[in-house]
Structures are given as structure tokens and as C-alpha cells.
């Protein structure tokens, strides 16, 4: 177990270096001049050179990459934004809870839609409910998230006035100047974005849960359970669900990791300045440190959640041993 964890962490380190390095290389391949942008429109060429030196952009990229790594390891700092000079750590800490609220909120909704719906359609294939569920799956998979987001915010938020159409409220440590705050305001503002993301993601999950349950229903051990005289609810609960849910656990973990890197469209539609929005903004400004911060956060999220999935899997499936 310990050896397994150590090996996983070493792998995470390798992955981390690879991801950050690739981000650096891509950034330096792009023909842009971040110093020019940072210095401002009216800056003289001398001034731009000065800024370039100040930001360290006049050094070869591997030197810059080395300095970046050194600062990260020794100070735990991701550096400062080229543009705003704010600490990237702070920037990420501000944006991450927004994206996390969106992703976890949506995941709770996804599972509470997809698990019951998937199970019932698997138990009654070709029934009315199953057909309705499959139509929903088609819609969920085909419609772009921003379209659903726009329609929901127009209908529910604007026309019906049931929810706000944009914005984010802090739950804890509400800033003085904030117009809203606290758990209620947070939930009230997050419901529509979460629902939008959930509608998009749940389609895939309904189909997946349905397929897994149907697959498990045809297993020999399910027939054994019936041959023992177990009533159908017991068969489903005790013999089908746990086995059918194993792959779903993997999928949830992977998707959470992936989405934490930023759900760009939905953040944009609902004016949430989360990681997705921050990433887009930093790309537009050639603000490498901020972009690097978002990439690193995303990579860590994926690494962490795949580890969580593996540990969870070993716990619920006795056949799997971590070695």
C-alpha cells in the first residue's frame, strides 16, 4: 500500500514536470510579445526592453523554466502575473472555489439524475421511461453547453426571474465590498450553472449506468441469486448495483478531475470568473505565469482524483489489490 502510494506520487511528479514543460515550450513557440502587452500601448521600444528584462523574458526559455521550477519548489510560489503583478497563488485560490462549486454541485446533480434514471431504464428496456431517457441522452450529448446555459439563463433567470443570471457569491470570508455572501446566496447563484453542466454531463452518465446495469443483470451470479430465491429488489440491491457502480466510480473521479481544469463555456455564460475564465483571459494577455498556474492546478486535480478513484476502487472491489 505504502509502496503503491510512493510509486503513484513519483509518477505524479513526472507527469507534473512533463505538463509544465510542455506549457512552457508551447508558450515560447507562439510569436507574441508579452512584454509589449505588459508595457502598454504607448511604451517606447526601450521601455519594452526594460519590461522584458524585468519579467525575465530576455533569457533562454530553459533558464526561465528552471527559475520557475526553483521558485515553485523552494517558495511554493507560482510567481506573479505579467500583467497585474498579483500573485498567481492568490489568483488560483480565488478562482478554484468557483470552479469547484460548479463541478461538485453539478456532479451531485448528475448522479442524482443519472443513477435512478439509468437503473430504471435498464430494468425496463424499451419501456416509455427508457425511451424518454434515451431521448434525453441524445439531447444532453448533442446540445452544446453554452446553448443550454443561455436558454436556461434567459428562461429561468430572465423571463421567470427565479434565479440570478450571473455572478458568484462567497460562502466564507465575504469581502466588505461584496453585494452578496453566505451559503444561501452561494447556492442561489450556483443553481443554474450547476444545472446546465449537469444536464450536459448527465446524458452520458444515464447511458453508461444503463449499460452497466444491463450488463450486470445478465451475469451468472445474478442468476445464482435468483436461483437462491432472492426477490427481485434484493437481487438488484445486493447483487446488481454494487457491481454495476464500480465503473461509474472511475468515470466520476476522472470527470471531476477533468472538469476542475475549468468548464470554460459555462463559466463564460454565467459570468463566473473561475479557472476556465482565468485561463482564457491569461491566454489573451500572454500572461504565462497565470496560465501555467491554471494548467498546474488542472493537472494536480486530475492526478489527485485518479488516485482517489484507485483507492476507492480497491476499497469497494475486493478483487483489486494495490501493489
Amino acid at each position: 500500500m505504502l509502496r503503491y502510494l510512493i510509486r503513484r506520487l513519483l509518477w505524479a511528479l513526472v507527469l507534473f514536470i512533463a505538463v509544465t514543460f510542455v506549457t512552457y515550450v508551447i508558450f515560447f513557440l507562439v510569436p507574441a510579445n508579452p512584454a509589449r502587452l505588459a508595457a502598454g500601448q504607448s511604451a517606447t521600444p526601450e521601455r519594452v526592453e526594460e519590461v522584458k528584462h524585468f519579467l525575465g523574458l530576455d533569457r533562454p526559455f530553459y533558464v526561465q523554466y528552471g527559475k520557475f521550477l526553483k521558485r515553485l519548489v523552494l517558495e511554493g510560489s507560482l510567481g506573479q502575473s505579467f500583467v497585474t503583478r498579483r500573485s498567481v497563488n492568490e489568483e488560483i485560490l480565488r478562482a478554484a472555489p468557483i470552479t469547484a462549486s460548479l463541478v461538485f454541485g453539478a456532479m451531485v446533480l448528475v448522479l442524482s439524475i443519472a443513477i435512478p434514471l439509468g437503473i430504471f431504464s435498464a430494468l425496463r428496456p424499451r419501456s416509455l421511461l427508457d425511451r424518454a431517457a434515451m431521448i434525453y441522452v441524445l439531447i444532453g450529448i448533442s446540445l452544446p453547453s453554452f446553448w443550454i446555459g443561455l436558454v436556461l439563463s434567459y428562461v429561468v433567470g430572465f423571463k421567470l426571474g427565479l434565479t440570478p443570471i450571473a455572478g458568484y457569491c462567497e460562502v466564507f470570508s465575504v469581502p466588505e465590498a461584496a453585494i452578496c455572501g453566505g451559503l444561501w446566496d452561494w447556492a442561489y447563484h450556483m443553481i443554474l450553472p450547476c444545472l446546465t453542466l449537469a444536464i450536459v454531463v448527465a446524458g452520458t452518465y444515464v447511458r453508461f449506468v444503463r449499460a452497466e446495469v444491463m450488463d450486470t443483470l445478465s451475469m451468472d451470479y445474478v442468476r445464482t441469486a435468483r436461483a437462491k430465491g432472492a426477490p427481485e429488489p434484493t437481487v438488484i440491491r445486493s447483487h446488481v448495483l454494487r457491481n454495476a457502480m464500480l465503473p461509474v466510480v472511475t468515470m466520476v473521479g476522472m470527470d471531476i478531475g477533468l472538469l476542475l481544469g475549468g468548464a470554460i463555456f459555462i463559466e463564460t455564460v454565467f459570468g463566473l470568473n473561475g479557472l476556465g475564465g482565468t485561463a482564457i483571459e491569461s491566454i489573451g494577455r500572454f500572461d504565462l505565469p497565470v496560465l501555467q498556474g491554471v494548467v498546474i492546478f488542472g493537472a494536480i486535480a486530475i492526478i489527485a482524483f485518479s488516485l482517489v478513484v484507485d483507492l476507492l476502487y480497491a476499497w469497494i472491489d475486493p478483487r483489486i489489490r494495490l501493489t
Binding site: M219, D220, R223, T224, A225, A227, R242, N243, P318
Partner: peptide, 16 residues
């Protein structure tokens, strides 16, 4: 009672 053909798959893998 019934005994099935394939003992490898006839027992539920997640229960003792």
C-alpha cells in the same frame, strides 16, 4: 436448488 456450469462467474465477486 441449482448448481450452474461456470463456478468462476456464478458467485458474486464483491461479497464474501
Amino acid at each position: 436448488a441449482m448448481i450452474f456450469q461456470d463456478p468462476m462467474t456464478s458467485l458474486n465477486p464483491v461479497h464474501k
